[in-house]
Amino acid sequence: MSAVAPAAAMPAPLPAAERSSGLPLVVLLLLPIALVNAFGFLAPVFNLLRMSFYESQATGAMVEVYTFATWASVLRDSFYAELILNSILVSLGITLMTLVCSYPIALYLHRSSGTWRTILLVLVISPLLTSAVVRTYGWVAILSENGLVNNALGAIGIAPLKLMFNKTGVVIGLTEILMPYMILALLAGFGRLDPRVEEAASTLGAPPWKVFRHIVVPLTMPGIALGSLLCFVLAVSSFITPKLLGGGRVFLLATEIYDQAIVTLNWPLAATLSILVLVIFGGALVLYTRALRAIM
């Protein structure tokens, strides 16, 4: 992304003494974030990796003896393969829904200006000021068996729909919760969109939908890629909403990790699944960078 300029590109007027200290400026500037990452990210991940090789006993106790048992059972058991696949598919579905719902809003926001734009932007961001728990309970009130939707349907004589304690509920809830992130990411990636270029396409004979398809979509690809990556990662790792709206009937990696760590107290298994989540994120990141290179 062109928005992220490397720190080294900034000419920093340093006093002569510091410049001659031998350490290149890049290293100095990157040092703080490197330290934070080392202690706040790499160390815990390493810990997690180590823990995944510990032995767990049926009592829930963890013994510091190295074994491949947990990994072997996870990799062999089709339940976990299904869990991973399910998590990825549900998250992809959520990402797609979020993208479809957010794109028109982001496009409209991008094109509006002045006070109106500010008001809209505040409206878009304001859900982030409320916790996901509260917003999820909001969805419970709407989707549950005698919630808003089913009451309304009942009033006009339609049988109630099962909107909760299944994938539908999880997808609806997470889509709404992730929309602000998607909209902000899309807006950040809309820089290449230029109304003159769209006009040029229409003077060349492109009807509006072709302008959208051949000009708007390709030019907003950086935003689409960024927003999708962000939402996919957030969807895979979210567990409160799937827990409340899935009601224990939707099995996802994040909820399973929570159960193993807090309920079953099988920490090595929780650690193993967590590492798998990281692997999925790594895959998503690789796809993202590939996509970006193809777009640019």
């Binding site: 230029d194 006009e199 229409s202 003077t203 509006p208 777009i295």
Partner: peptide, 29 residues
């Protein structure tokens, strides 16, 4: 509507399609 007017317009700011090659820009119409 513009796309039905059959007019060619050369923009003061060029307004080329940045994601397309020169050949594809020219071929677009």
């Amino acid at each position: 509507a513009t796309h039905r007017r059959d007019m060619g317009l050369v923009f003061q700011s060029y307004a080329l399609f940045p994601h397309m090659s020169v050949a594809r820009n020219v071929a677009f119409g």
